[in-house]
């Protein structure tokens, strides 16, 4: 069973993002970038499938500018066998200029070329937070999908999975015939550290580079970002002494009571 994992380079989850002065987006200069946390979950799951011999090969794919190579290296150090780098123009912001439709279209091309049986993605990236790429990819491929996976069990390698997925009201268990698209939630697993020997081994693994613009996929955004603004700063509250004072404030200051 050949598994493909999408890994996206995003602003590190622990960075407190700032808005660019021109309000065109969040500031990306001199900001620590890391693999999207949900992609780490997807990657971890793929490596586990490899370890249990359910997967024969794990291919990591990243779509982005030159620097996305670093994210691929991390994926290789975590245990992917090889990488595919779909190179985008350095001027295009992958957090808002490259939309899920385009990403799904590019991934579809890679899936078809690599002949994979299972695509593992993060449920969403923490920059755009669209949560659309997985479902769109499944739709384009005509494959089943299981989103927000909390547990993946291989019923028969290359044929059948059982996926427990998180929903608002509890978990749902799906029987998923392969090929399929599965998107990872945070509780799926705990991603491993890339150990030092594996970091060294990753150096010898290959990364194929494709150019996004040459892949016959429409990359044009369907939306336009007009401006990005920070959420309003929350004002400190006051502690009232009594119910009467509360009612008085609701009437006179908040104006929500008559």
């Amino acid at each position: 069973m050949r598994v493909m994992v999408g890994v996206k380079r995003v602003v590190d989850y622990a960075v407190k993002v700032r808005i660019q002065p021109d309000k065109a987006g969040v500031e990306l200069k001199n900001v620590k970038m890391s693999m999207n946390p949900f992609c780490e979950n997807a990657m971890e799951e793929a490596v586990k499938l490899k370890e249990t011999k359910a997967a024969s090969e794990v291919i990591a794919v990243s779509i982005g500018p030159k620097a996305a190579k670093d994210t691929l290296r991390t994926a290789l150090a975590m245990g992917a066998d090889r990488g595919v780098h779909v190179m985008t123009d350095d001027a295009v912001r992958t957090d808002q200029g490259l939309e899920p439709l385009a990403v799904a279209g590019l991934l579809k091309k890679v899936v078809e070329e690599q002949k994979v049986d299972l695509v593992l993605l993060g449920k969403q990236s923490i920059d755009g937070d669209c949560s659309q790429t997985g479902p769109m990819l499944a739709g384009m491929l005509g494959w089943p999908q299981a989103t927000f996976a909390a547990k993946v069990t291989v019923v028969e390698a290359g044929k059948q999975l059982e996926v427990e997925r998180e929903t608002d009201t509890g978990t749902q268990v799906l029987s998923v015939p392969l090929p399929a698209v599965v998107t990872a939630d945070l509780r799926l697993n705990e991603p491993r550290y890339a150990t030092l020997p594996n970091i060294m081994k990753a150096k010898k693994k290959t990364v194929d580079v494709l150019t996004a613009a040459d892949m016959g996929v429409d990359l044009k955004p369907r939306t336009t970002v007009i401006e990005v603004v920070p959420p309003p700063v929350r004002q400190g509250g006051v502690i009232v002494e009594s119910v009467d004072e509360l009612i008085d404030k609701l009437k006179t200051e908040a104006g929500v009571l008559q």
Binding site: R9, D12, M33, M35, E40, T71, R73, T74, A194
Partner: peptide
């Protein structure tokens, strides 16, 4: 920030 590991930079 939680128990997650981080990865990848320049």
């Amino acid at each position: 920030a939680g128990a997650r590991r981080r990865s990848t930079t320049g």
